[in-house]
């Protein structure tokens, strides 16, 4: 009686290990990237093209930029693909990354309720808009997760002459979550939120939200890609990772990025090699 059970258990384990090993393909890399690129659907568009050409499977772990860089620092990713230039350069300087490449950009937009309680709609001065929100104490949702978007938001507060860590009140909601979660929160509380345009365009649960401020050059959002340094972490698949980076910045990869559209709108603008850093 018991023997039959041991057989069943043994069979289960065989089944599991077979399944797991079937899933574990060798020619694959892990890319730590941001929630904004994942939530926008870009990867689902470009990765199949890359795989078709090279046979390399790219596994994307979507995190905030800060966490993604940290994943790279720990050696748990082969490539990081993020959007916070200052942090990225620091990452390379510390020796965790080999070299940073510009890949593409889009821009941030300030999203807010249609009735616009802070009265900022239509302006293209993001600093003025931030000041108005602070002055009127209208709800503002902050990512609060050290992501690229969060760093951009903190930079914008500073440029508006506001020390947000000192000035924040109950109107300023730090949620510590991804872009999508921040948009959901803003949608449900009718607040303002800084979003990358890509995530906003592919976001479905807009409620009463719409873009209130866009077009300020301070809202520029540059994405970069870095190979994790194999000298720090020998487990890094440098060759495959570099192949991915090379493809991203190649004309072919750049075209693939440009070709990704949601509702006819292009989300990301390739600019590899145009903004040398």
């Amino acid at each position: 009686m018991l023997r039959r059970h041991f057989l069943a258990i043994a069979a289960t384990f065989l089944f599991i290990s077979a399944g797991v090993s079937a899933l574990a393909q060798d020619k694959s890399i892990v890319v730590a990237s941001t929630t904004s690129t994942q939530d926008s659907g870009l990867f689902e568009h470009i990765l199949p093209l890359f795989k078709e050409k090279t046979g390399i499977e790219v596994k994307v772990v979507a995190q905030g930029t800060g966490q993604a860089l940290d994943t790279g620092r720990r050696g748990d990713a082969d490539v990081v693909f993020v959007h916070a230039k200052a942090q990225e350069e620091e990452f390379v300087e510390e020796g965790y990354g080999v070299k940073r490449f510009d890949v593409m950009y889009n821009d941030f937009v300030l999203v807010g309720p249609k009735e616009d309680p802070a009265g900022v709609a239509g302006t293209d001065d993001i600093a003025a808009a931030f000041q108005a929100i602070r002055d009127k104490q209208t709800p503002f949702v902050s990512r609060g997760d050290k992501s690229g978007t969060h760093s951009a938001e903190l930079r914008l507060w500073k440029e508006a002459g506001i020390d947000i860590s000192a000035d924040k009140g109950p109107w300023y909601r730090e949620i510590g979550q991804g872009m999508g979660a921040a948009l959901n929160t803003a949608s449900s509380m009718n607040g303002y939120v800084l979003s990358d345009r890509g995530t906003w365009l592919s976001f479905k649960n807009r409620g009463d939200l719409e873009i209130v401020v866009e077009g300020d050059k301070r809202l520029f959002n540059q994405y970069g890609v870095i190979l994790v340094n194999p000298e720090k972490h020998p487990s890094v698949k440098a060759e495959l990772g570099q192949a991915f980076i090379d493809w991203l910045v190649s004309p072919e990869g750049q075209e693939a990025i440009a070709a990704y559209k949601v509702d006819g709108q292009q989300l990301f603008f390739p600019n590899a090699g145009q903004d040398p850093s």
Partner: peptide
């Protein structure tokens, strides 16, 4: 697991992802 598409995406992480995309 990292919620990697086609590799470690489970029902629950897919639900979390679709929620964050606003695809309620």
């Amino acid at each position: 697991g990292g919620n990697i598409d086609g590799f470690t995406r489970t029902m629950t992480t897919a639900i979390a992802l679709e929620t964050s995309k606003g695809n309620l």
